[in-house]
Design a protein around this nucleic acid. Structure first.
Lengths: 139, 139
DNA sequence: ATGCCTGCAAAGCTTTTGCAGATGC
DNA sequence: GCATCTGCAAAAGCTTTGCAGGCAT
């Protein structure tokens, strides 16, 4: 029940919808969820929370730095708990599976490239679209 | 007037809307345009072409490999002529300016990272969000 | 009690689709 | 002449907003 404190720190009142949504986001199943995904999980849990509220809460969480919003291909956004550890994503085009990874070298090169063009790197978005190699172990 | 041939190669009938849209995409002003941008340019040029047609044509062009669609942050797509030369993008958060760049090293590292996880790299999307360094020359 | 929060429904935005008429070949 | 293409308008999909009531503090 540490979530109450997270909400408090974010300057948000502790309400049932926010607790439930935070709980779902912290669940260890799928880390990357769309608003719709969350809405469905709430329905399954018999929580009477509107889709509009899900969106509002997610936006508030984003402003508060609790979650990160990603715009993968396909029009809709997905959200993920922001634990402070930066990483990029790899999406399997067959299964839709999302794998997180970090490459310090890529990070460094990005800053370097930006600098070469006279820019300071503020942020970046890197998504690899991949496909499982037959017969390979996935890690 | 080489555009007719490009359309033909793509298996598309030569029509006024397609010619005009291709022409705009090949214009040397802004390389990255949204459907709306193109629609506005058509209106300015007094061409009587509907927005729906712009979308349809862009989708056809994309299938034909004539253009590439990017989903930068912000909900709407931008299109760019596909000249076969792969590159990534750097977007200035202040001016909205878009700079293209290629880093062979980053490309190589991406494939490497994917392989380490048992995946084959099919495609990727890399966007750097940057800010001009005061007093630096921009190249 | 007060002010922030929620649910519902309606609107907003980008993109897609249906249909009848127009156009290219 | 026939199939493909276009314009218009309406619909679709995701997300946001307005409003009246509800809940946390």
């Amino acid at each position: 029940m540490e979530q109450r404190q997270e909400l408090r720190n974010a300057g948000l009142k502790i309400t049932l919808p926010r607790l439930k949504i935070l709980e779902i986001l912290e669940g260890n199943q799928q880390r990357h969820k769309s608003a719709e995904d969350i809405y469905k999980e709430l329905l399954n849990a018999n929580e009477d929370i509107g889709l509009a509220t899900v969106y509002r809460v997610l936006t508030q969480f984003e402003s508060a730095g609790l979650v990160t919003r990603h715009n993968f291909e396909g029009g809709h956004s997905v959200f993920e708990i922001d634990d402070g550890k930066h990483h990029d994503h790899m999406v399997c085009v067959d299964s839709g599976e999302v794998v997180e990874f970090v490459s310090d070298e890529i990070e460094r090169l990005q800053a370097e490239v930006a600098a070469q063009h006279g820019y300071e790197l503020l942020d970046h978005s890197l998504v690899l679209y991949v496909k499982k190699i037959a017969g390979a172990n996935s890690d």
